[in-house]
């Protein structure tokens, strides 16, 4: 690893100024991906900007407008937050799924998104929950739906000088539930071979609306819109769930690599989508 400078600005404007002045700068929130990549020589920079001291990026606010989650909020703050566990239990699950305890002390959901790994555990769920990304840059702020944020492995819509400030989740609707399931060969400390995030809204035994997203089966986390939409208005039963699962499988375009074959991954898309739907349905039914 080469020498680099380190800066830890305490305001968003200061961070944006540093970003503007140093086109090669890399942002560090938890650093749990960045430092590994730098040590392995996959990323190099002369300046690392630590964004953990910026107030906006550490916000964790739950109110009538939903959840505002600062991009640098570490996972442990999420799963230790009682109201998040009540309102967004699937988000609590994901925050406790990423890494081990030490990693969760630093790693953030925003970082998981910006790292733009196809297998990022948080992203399919964020898509299912309809999260919106708030981005700040040289020409002000803009918002992007999370399903449009990742553009390729390791690549995002962030332009030169921009950074992710926060994620916004709409308030949970009545009779709704969400879930994220991933498949890993071990029981912990592993990268998803495939993942499925779903959210469902029920209405008198029928699906009102459903969002399904997949991980690790395409160049980016994948919003399987057709699979979710197929359930709108349909009764909650195994046949409908299986149909949606097959549509999710059809939407996937996985590769064969050390974590699994393409055929196996496609198969898992259906298995995980069905299982996640059942878990989300149960949560929605319990939510009343």
């Amino acid at each position: 690893m080469k020498w680099f400078d380190y800066s830890a600005p305490s305001s968003l404007s200061e961070a944006l100024k540093l970003l503007r002045e140093n086109s090669q700068a890399l942002l560090l929130a938890g650093g749990t991906d960045l430092l590994v990549q730098m040590r392995a020589g996959r990323k190099q920079t002369d300046l690392v900007i630590d964004i953990k001291n910026i107030a906006e990026l550490n916000q964790l606010v739950l109110d009538a407008s939903g959840l505002r989650l600062g991009a640098a909020v570490p996972c442990y703050r999420i799963y230790n937050h009682r109201d998040i566990a009540r309102g967004y239990p699937a988000l609590s699950d994901v925050a406790s799924l990423i890494g081990g305890t030490q990693i969760q002390g630093r790693a953030s959901i925003g970082g998981n998104l910006c790292n733009a790994a196809p297998s990022a555990d948080a992203v399919p769920l964020l898509i299912a929950l309809g999260a919106i990304c708030r981005i700040a840059g040289p020409s002000g702020e803009r918002t992007v739906p999370v399903e449009e944020f990742c553009t390729a492995p390791g690549k995002t819509v962030l332009k030169q000088g921009e950074l992710l400030v926060s994620l916004h989740l709409p308030p949970p609707k009545p009779h709704s539930g969400a879930a994220y399931l991933r498949f890993i060969p071990r029981n912990e400390m592993d990268i998803a071979v495939a993942g499925a995030g779903v959210s469902v809204e029920l209405n008198n035994g029928n699906f009102q609306s459903v969002r399904i997203a997949l991980g690790a089966v395409a160049p980016t986390p994948l919003y399987a819109k057709q699979a979710g939409d197929s359930l709108a208005g349909k009764p909650v039963n195994d046949a409908c769930i299986q149909t949606a699962a097959e549509l999710a499988k059809a939407a996937a375009s996985p590769i064969t690599d050390m974590r699994g074959t393409a055929e196996y991954r496609r198969h898992l898309c259906a298995v995980l989508t069905a299982r996640a739907l059942k878990q989300a349905i149960q949560r929605a039914q319990e939510a009343k």
């Binding site: 060969p185 071990r186 029981n187 912990e188 400390m189 592993d190 990268i191 690599d257 050390m258 974590r259």
Partner: peptide
Amino acid sequence: MQNSSLLDYRMPTSLD
């Protein structure tokens, strides 16, 4: 070798 790290060279953990 594609999995030359302890993340991807999957030895069992205590949870397995």
